[in-house]
Each structure stands twice: as C-alpha cells, then as structure tokens.
Amino acid sequence: MSGHGHGHGHGDGCGCEGEHEPAERGLEYGLYRRIDLDKLQCLNESREGDGRLVFKPWDKRTERDKFVESDADEELLFNIPFTGSVKLKGVIVAGEDDESHHQPEIRLYKNIPQMSFDDTGREPEQAFRLNRDPLSSAGSHPFLARIARFSNVHHLSIHISKNFAAESTRVYYIGLRGEYSEAHRHEVTICNYEATANPTDHKVESIIPQTNFIS
C-alpha cells in the first residue's frame, strides 16, 4: 500500500495527484466537453449508449443514476475520439461501491481508432494496477498520465480488463484531465492554370481535300 493511503498496486504509472479544492478540480477535469460523443464507442456494454453517460461534469461524478455495465464478461473498452488534440495529464475511473466491482487494472492506448478487444494484446502506453480502494468509487482517486506519451492524443482508448470478483464491471464516472488544442483545418485551393486557351498550344492541322477531274 502506498504512503498516500490509497491502496495502490505495484503497477507502473500509479501516481496520485496532490489535493485540490473541488471547484478547482472540476475545472481541471473538463475534457469531457472535448469528446465527440456521437462517435464514442463502448464495447461490451450491456445496454447500447450507456458508455457515453459516464463522461460528465466533476460535480456529478458521485451520482449513481447513470452508469455503464459490462455484458458478456467483466471487460469494457472505451473508444474516445476528441474534437481536437489533447495533452492528457490525469484519469479518474469511479466504479461500484461494492469492492467486487472495482477495477484492478486500467490500460490506456493512444490514437487507435475503432480499437477492438483483439487489439488489447498490444502493449499499452500506460497501465494502472490497483488494489481495492473505497476512494475509487467516490471518483476521488486520480492517476497521473505520462505526458510524454500522451502529448498529442486525438483518440484515447481505455480498457478495463478485469475486476476483483464480479461477473460484470460497473462504471459511473470517467474523468479526464489535460490540455486541449483545436484541430487545424487545411484549406484546399483549386487553381485554374489556363483561363484562356493559347492558340499556339492547340495546333489544328487543316486538311485541304484534293479533287481529281477525270476527262
């Protein structure tokens, strides 16, 4: 257990952030507004569309009326497209109050659109391995992302690979902290190189027919 008293596992990248006032923290975790929700996917959700419900304001993180629950097994995979470029700095995943539903492992992948469970065998950019922790269910347990690996993110995948005991996994809130930059749009200019035809470039051979007279 770490000195923070949060009960971390020994996996890499499980750094906790310092304490902040809730209002300040709410401003920090505002990247949910930069998600293209129409294109967001949650694989293995028990009810279609529920995965979008967990990306919400900081002050609603402890509400329990909206959540996503896994279907066939305990895995969940979130494919999160942003409307621009993100420098990811922190992640919060709030699960069920019941310890059996807490997520012992969370894996982050960068810029793999349409990621499937078949792709989760590759090495993630970062993984968080947790012990059972009541703070996780309260949405008060942030983890630091490795900024060097998440400095130019336009698509983020979060894979919850297993829980501690339950047949399904339930998530109430996912918070993302970081910086956002608008996407740059490149305009295409179509040039007309020839406004008026040059007669010298379009030679037309004249054919003069010959008439033979038979006397």
Rank of each mutant, 00 (worst) to 15 (best):
8 H>C: 09
9 G>R: 04
22 P>G: 02
26 G>V: 00
26 G>K: 03
27 L>T: 10
29 Y>H: 05
36 D>A: 13
37 L>Y: 03
40 L>H: 08
45 E>Q: 12
48 E>W: 03
50 D>F: 04
56 K>R: 15
59 D>G: 06
60 K>A: 13
61 R>E: 10
63 E>L: 07
63 E>I: 00
64 R>M: 02
66 K>G: 01
67 F>T: 06
67 F>L: 15
69 E>V: 14
70 S>K: 12
71 D>A: 13
73 D>K: 09
76 L>M: 10
76 L>C: 04
79 N>T: 04
80 I>V: 15
84 G>M: 07
86 V>H: 06
87 K>E: 14
89 K>H: 09
94 A>G: 10
95 G>I: 09
97 D>N: 15
100 S>F: 06
101 H>A: 07
102 H>E: 14
104 P>A: 04
104 P>N: 07
105 E>Y: 01
109 Y>N: 05
110 K>E: 08
111 N>S: 04
114 Q>S: 13
118 D>H: 09
119 D>G: 08
120 T>G: 06
121 G>R: 05
125 E>A: 10
126 Q>K: 02
127 A>D: 01
128 F>Y: 15
130 L>Q: 12
131 N>P: 00
131 N>T: 07
135 L>K: 10
144 L>R: 15
145 A>Q: 02
148 A>K: 11
149 R>A: 12
153 V>N: 05
157 S>C: 14
159 H>A: 14
160 I>G: 01
161 S>E: 04
162 K>A: 01
166 A>S: 14
166 A>M: 01
169 T>R: 06
179 E>P: 01
181 S>F: 08
184 H>G: 03
184 H>C: 06
186 H>A: 11
189 T>P: 00
191 C>M: 08
195 A>H: 11
196 T>V: 13
196 T>M: 03
204 V>N: 02
206 S>H: 09
207 I>Q: 03
211 T>S: 11
212 N>Y: 12
